[in-house]
Design a protein around this nucleic acid. Structure first.
Length: 430
RNA sequence: GUGGUCGUAGCUCAGUUGGUUAGAGCGCCAGGUUGUGGCCCUGGAGGUCGGGGGUUCAAGACCCCUCGAUCACCCCA
């Protein structure tokens, strides 16, 4: 047992995967597979990958988040060094917008579709599907106000899930209106709730001051009843936003995507406007949200742009996606088989093996051999464990004759192959 | 930060009302076959029973503390 352990809320991705308590971390090949599918789907949307640093200036994030600066100090990994404030990125939208502005990506021309896959960090207490180092992927469409962009981000996320075989999800959709809509709505909501605030839970009562819209998220049945006749955000949004929302829904319908209009779906941050959506899985418990996103036209201004750069995107969690895939038993990525495994008998044969194996690898053949000088039986067992299709047996006799014994492990048949024909024959075999 | 549950081999777990050398299955290593894998048989390695303290003639079991894991609350940009 080693004396060092990975930091709580972080985990290793291993060749065979691992289980830690209730959670199981998928094998690395499953992660690779999911990432490959994400890249394929993104390619279908003409999206290019963007990789931004994991370290960002704290200011970038706190600007984005606005006045809620205790989030920065309590919920994020932030530190100061040499007078500069750094933060491990808690999400990727703000960094992407930063990069867009820094490198004038609008000058590439047209609307930018940018996707990312990578780690993010939050200093919260870990729980199922929530880690301190977690992995997100997402798509940002920057430079378009068109409602098709909103619908496209949703479609793209859904396409990723479908490409992986997931069909068990639900799309919730809402419109947050423009920058003026929410203050108006907040006022009305508080006015509605105040009269019976003494019937609310302590938690919700505190929210009444800090973040009244989050009360709508309550899971408490009694509170849900009280909220039954609460004013709805939809009734407070501006006409243009309403039209935009209708368009988004029409576009979704046009591609046969069903959604649930959820007037209670809200976003805490001020730079969000119009479209907000969430994609949930039924099968992964309390942390059921697979992906979320929406329109954030005002972020660019928050980050210092003189003009509004319209943008919409989604962000999705890899861990939760993998959990959902596992729950649906869609994660059978086979172990990568070796084409051939050398069984070398004796020192001379072992020496001979190395350059030959190297040459086969150069020819694109996946080969392995024993590195611990073990018995033939042990080498055969190793070949079997690695599921090698064939075994190349070489001992003193073979070295003398220049002819190897090649055994097909699936058929249990064996044949003689001259050394100089090994590459050809193994290539044909595949 | 708050609450629930749980810590015994690499993994999954047994360990009877406290009783003497702490077990199983799988995995790993080796032998059975001095040049042939999977199946089978035999053997081996691997545990300060999370850590510390206490009760007792005796603690993996009981008590206290502590650390860790996990689920949930808070939070969720």
């Amino acid at each position: 047992m080693s004396s060092f352990k990975s930091i709580p809320g972080t985990f290793d991705i291993l060749p065979d995967g691992q289980t830690s308590g209730g959670d199981s971390i998928a094998p690395s090949r499953v992660w690779q597979h999911v990432e490959t599918v994400i890249r394929q789907v993104m390619a279908l949307y003409g999206a290019e990958e963007i990789r931004t640093p994991i370290l960002e200036p704290t200011e970038l994030i706190s600007r984005g988040i606005g006045q809620l600066t205790d989030i920065v100090s309590k919920e994020m990994f932030a530190f100061e060094r040499g007078g500069t404030n750094y933060v491990l990125r808690p999400e990727v939208t703000a960094p992407v917008m930063r990069a867009y502005q820094q490198h004038h990506l609008d000058q590439r021309g047209g609307v930018q579709r940018l996707f990312y896959i990578g780690p993010c960090f939050r200093a919260e207490r870990p729980q199922k599907g929530r880690y301190r180092q977690f992995h997100q992927f997402g798509l940002e469409i920057i430079g378009a106000t068109d409602a098709r962009a909103d619908a496209e981000t949703i479609a793209c996320a859904v396409d990723v899930y479908r490409a992986l075989g997931l069909n068990d999800f639900k799309i919730r959709l809402n419109s947050l209106g423009d920058a003026e809509s929410r203050p108006r709505y907040k006022e009305a909501l508080i006015a509605y709730i105040k009269p019976f605030s003494d019937q609310l839970s302590e938690v919700s009562r505190n929210r009444l001051e800090s973040n009244p819209m989050r009360i709508l998220d309550t899971k408490n049945e009694k509170e849900r009843l009280l909220l039954k006749n609460a004013p709805l955000l939809v009734d407070f949004i501006d006409e243009e936003s309403r039209l935009h929302h209708d368009e988004v829904k029409a576009h979704l319908s046009a591609i046969g995507l069903s959604y649930v209009d959820d007037p209670f779906l809200v976003r805490g941050l001020d730079y969000y406007s119009r479209t907000a959506f969430e994609i949930e899985s039924e099968s992964i418990g309390a942390q059921g949200s697979l992906a979320g996103g929406g329109r954030y036209d005002l972020l660019s201004v928050e980050l210092g742009s003189k003009k509004v750069i319209p943008a919409v995107g989604f962000a999705a969690g890899m861990e939760r996606l993998l959990m959902a895939l596992e729950a649906a038993e869609l994660v059978n990525i086979p172990f990568g088989r070796l084409d051939a495994f050398f069984v070398a008998l004796g020192d001379e044969a072992m020496k001979w093996t190395f350059p030959v194996a190297h040459a086969l690898r150069a020819a694109g053949i996946k080969v392995g051999y024993d590195l611990s000088g073990r018995s033939m039986k042990a080498q055969m067992r190793e070949a079997n464990r690695q599921q090698a299709r064939q075994v190349i047996i070489v001992g003193d006799d073979e070295l003398a004759s220049g002819i190897a014994q090649v055994k097909d492990m699936d058929q249990s048949t064996q044949r003689s192959v001259p050394f100089d024909q090994l590459t050809n024959q193994l290539t044909d075999k595949e």
